[in-house]
Design a protein around this nucleic acid. Structure first.
Lengths: 148, 148
DNA sequence: TGCAATTGGTTACAGATGAAACTATAAGGT
DNA sequence: ACCTTATAGTTTCATCTGTAACCAATTGCA
């Protein structure tokens, strides 16, 4: 029998590693929703997110979309450009500050929003249905604390 | 006063929408860990994940890495190629099936693993510290149910 | 007023990603 | 043995993404 000279490696158990589990879960859920509207409307996830922000806060600037969504500035710029291009968002210019855009959903944009939003909500319900009411309350509270 | 002809839009509240919250949380957590090793070792997240799998299951094929990690086949192929290139993983060929690779961490690979793994675990603890013990138990249980 | 620093937004580039096509080997059925 | 099908892994291509550089309008202040 020999002395232990090699340090014992301590491999991570990826399956139980929180960041990994979150990443898998998040991707699975987001992908299943995105799959639903990407083909039907040629709408990327970023574009959809911008649309939901504009649905809730009409007439805001791209900057405000960034602030409200934690999305990347460049990503928002590109998404808005495509949405304007597709006639789904109307872009105006702020009266007193010519740098600022003023964005809102067009009628076509609203039509898509009104079709996609309920389906997205349904997906969320499908996921949450795996939990009982007590677990849903805890999850909500835990996410708030983790993201605080 | 007029009849209500326009249907009431029902915008999603992105801030409270589960898939969105998961996505933000997951990105925040994973990014903060990845930032730690990406610069110091020029190691991508995919490569690091492959390394953790090989640490736990030495002498497996790329296929088994895919199965155990839910990662994309192509992503694994590329990550392994880079790791082999960098001398962090040794690639052999399976005796009775020449298609199959046999992968394991090299000494250099283990050295990196042994430095990164504890730091990754520390990051996980940092995140979980925002919760009390009861919440941690619930979170674990909830993730299991959602991912079941 | 004039000029440096800031801010809103876009562009350019470099790296990451995923679907599909491809190569090579193996397995299965006749 | 022969031929079809399946599997391991790589390559290709088109798209996405993030960082940094950039432009134009605005603000702050000497």
């Amino acid at each position: 029998m020999s002395h232990e000279t090699v340090p014992a490696h301590a491999p991570l158990d990826l399956e139980r590693f929180l960041p990994y589990r979150l990443s898998i879960l998040s991707n699975t859920v987001s992908q299943s929703i995105a799959a639903d509207y990407q083909d039907r409307f040629e709408l990327s996830m970023t574009e959809w997110r911008v649309m939901t922000i504009l649905a809730r806060f009409p007439e805001i600037s791209a900057r405000e979309v960034v602030d409200r969504s934690r999305m990347d500035k460049v990503a928002v710029s590109r998404a808005v450009a495509r949405l304007v291009d597709a006639g789904r968002v109307d872009r105006g210019i702020h009266g007193s500050d010519k740098r600022r855009s003023v964005l809102k959903l067009s009628d076509a944009g609203w039509a898509i929003h009104d079709e996609v939003a309920p389906r997205a909500r349904q997906h969320e319900r499908d996921v949450l249905e795996k939990l009982d009411e007590e677990e849903r309350v805890w999850l909500d509270r835990i996410l708030d604390k983790l993201m605080g």
